[in-house]
Design a binder for these strands. Structure first.
Length: 484
RNA sequence: GCCCCUGUCGUCUAGCCAGGUUAGGACAUCGCCCUUUCAAGGCGGCAGCACGGGUUCAAGUCCCGUCGGGGGCGCCA
């Protein structure tokens, strides 16, 4: 059975890059009917935090990336790593190094003076005699355990990059166990991946250069080497590494900003992966069915929010009002909730009416409120254009028509017929009535078809809103006159 | 500095492994249609093989180099 893992370190929140790695692992596991393990790599006890771990779990749940095993915390497994480092020590595949960081830095500088540009640890402690080691240990001199990198070269077949090879002479005798007894990343990752039965390692390209070190460790332990797949790193719009100034925040921020999890998942999936068919978005089931590492591209994609907006608008249009309602309530403030939950049936109707032209849930809430509570504001430009003497006259004229339509006949076709007749009678275009009417009803210059809007409000409320607008125009005129 | 990875429209990508395409699609953008506005939808436009050699009848595709971008080289992960 295939088994993969996502192994974030809780030194920051789950951002776009991490989420993509998690997603690809998840898709791979689901596609292969395998298992997805979550492991928190918190061995850097200074920079890691409990809060960040929680945040990462929350973000993954929001995205729908549930894990089958874990979360495991490396900080709870320190003795395991230590034992494994000591095993290599006993077998002569690793050695104690008593050099302090300062001493090493000093030697590095000396080497640079002599013109050696890429200095590696000089294996000074590899040649210590038994007696010297005994003495240092007795003195309680702190030490690290270093891996003794063997000669030769290391090759592996990456699922995405194909063949990758490195000369072992390029690799330094890296540290396995720090002097405080904590493992370094290379040790803990290899030990855990083996012990947890990970068969496929899918992670970012930033780990590609370090993979040979880990392969060397697998060999030293005599373990089966898993398959590797390194995902190209996501870049910012300036083709530079993703950073805060590119809007790289927690994925939960995207939720707050009105994006749906399915939108973000599709957006991430299509960065460096080609699903084979061109559709605005796919359901999770479709993504799982289609997923394959072979279709992951090798070059780094640029993160482009416009695409996310497009996908989000398509997902929003595709959802049922009831589903959208749930999502909207989820991100609403208490104040907004009171408006949205007051008359759920009406809210659902408004959602249905508006959803095809919404890009974003946050924006949706803002628009929705104008349909569900009293109008809080009229669009400024719209006011200047349509709330004038003529606009008022047209509103009054059409208001009379509406008042004469019975409640049972309050339908799109009749409303439209009456409006067009009225316009012709006055000698104006239908639009001259429609524009002020739209502003009066919705507070906005844009809306769904005006007759759908009328029907949505119903006769009574439509009349109230139109009257209110007329009153508003009157007051505005009075204010202007008194100023003169 | 050394090592590794990587270059197709503005962006995401198909095509490359098994050389012969008017280099295809999507987003964005522009125009037109529809139309009461805005979206949506339909139709169309602009726009790309980083550069230089080589192999070949033929190179986006194979080889070499240059340049660009990214990553790694920690008692960080």
């Amino acid at each position: 059975m295939k088994k993969v893992r996502f192994a974030p370190s809780p030194t920051g929140y789950l951002h776009i890059g991490g989420a993509r790695t998690a997603l690809f692992n998840w898709l791979f596991a689901k596609n292969k009917n395998g298992k997805f393990v979550l492991r928190i790599e918190d061995t850097d006890n200074i920079r890691s935090s409990k809060e960040m771990s929680e945040e990462i779990l929350k973000a993954m749940r929001w995205l729908g990336l549930e894990w089958d095993e874990g979360p495991f915390f490396q900080s709870e497994r320190l003795d395991i790593y230590k034992k494994h480092a000591e095993k290599l020590l006993e077998e002569g595949k690793a050695y104690r190094c008593f050099c302090t960081p300062e001493e090493i830095e000093e030697r590095r500088k000396q080497a640079e003076k002599k013109g050696i540009k890429s200095w590696k640890y000089d294996r000074k402690c590899l040649n210590l005699s038994k007696d010297e080691i005994e003495k240092f240990l007795k003195d309680g001199k702190p030490y690290v355990i270093r891996f003794k990198v063997p000669e030769g070269k290391t090759e592996f077949e990456d699922k995405i990059h194909k063949k990758v090879k490195v000369e072992n002479s390029e690799i330094e005798d890296f540290v396995l166990l720090k002097s405080d007894g904590f493992p370094t990343y290379h040790l803990s990752v290899v030990v855990d991946d083996h012990l947890m039965g990970i068969t496929n390692i899918i992670r970012g390209d930033d780990h590609l250069s370090n993979t040979p070190k880990q392969i060397l460790l697998y060999k030293a332990f005599g373990w089966k080497i898993p398959e590797f797949a390194h995902l190209p790193l996501i870049l910012g719009p300036d083709k530079q590494k993703l950073s805060k100034r590119h809007g790289v925040t927690s994925v939960l921020n995207y939720k707050k900003e009105g994006y749906l999890a399915l939108s973000l998942v599709n957006f991430l999936a299509k960065l460096s992966w080609n699903p084979g068919e061109d559709k605005p978005f796919f359901s999770l089931e479709e993504l799982i069915k289609r997923f394959s590492l072979g279709k992951v591209t090798k070059n780094s994609p640029v993160f482009d929010l416009k695409k996310l907006d497009f996908i989000n608008s398509k997902v929003i249009s595709s959802l049922k009002p009831e589903e959208l309602y749930k999502e909207i309530i989820e991100i609403s403030t208490d104040e907004d909730k009171s408006i949205l939950e007051k008359d759920k049936e009406k809210t659902l109707k408004a959602i249905e009416l508006l959803k095809t032209r919404m890009k974003n849930l946050k924006e949706f809430i803002k628009i929705l409120k104008n349909y569900l509570s009293e109008i809080l504001y009229y669009d400024k430009e719209g006011e200047e254009k349509f709330f004038n003497i003529e606009g008022k006259e047209y509103l009054e004229a059409y208001l009379k028509e509406i008042e004469n339509i019975s409640k049972d006949s309050f339908h799109q076709d009749i409303l439209e017929k009456k409006l067009r007749e009225k316009a012709e009678q006055i000698g104006i275009k239908a639009g001259s009535i429609i524009h002020p009417l739209r502003l009066a009803l919705t507070g906005n210059r844009v809306s769904p078809g005006i007759f759908d809007v009328l029907v949505f409000f119903g006769k009574e409320e439509a009349i109230i809103r139109i009257k209110k607008a007329i009153e508003y125009i009157n007051e505005k005129n009075r204010a202007n006159n008194s100023r003169i």
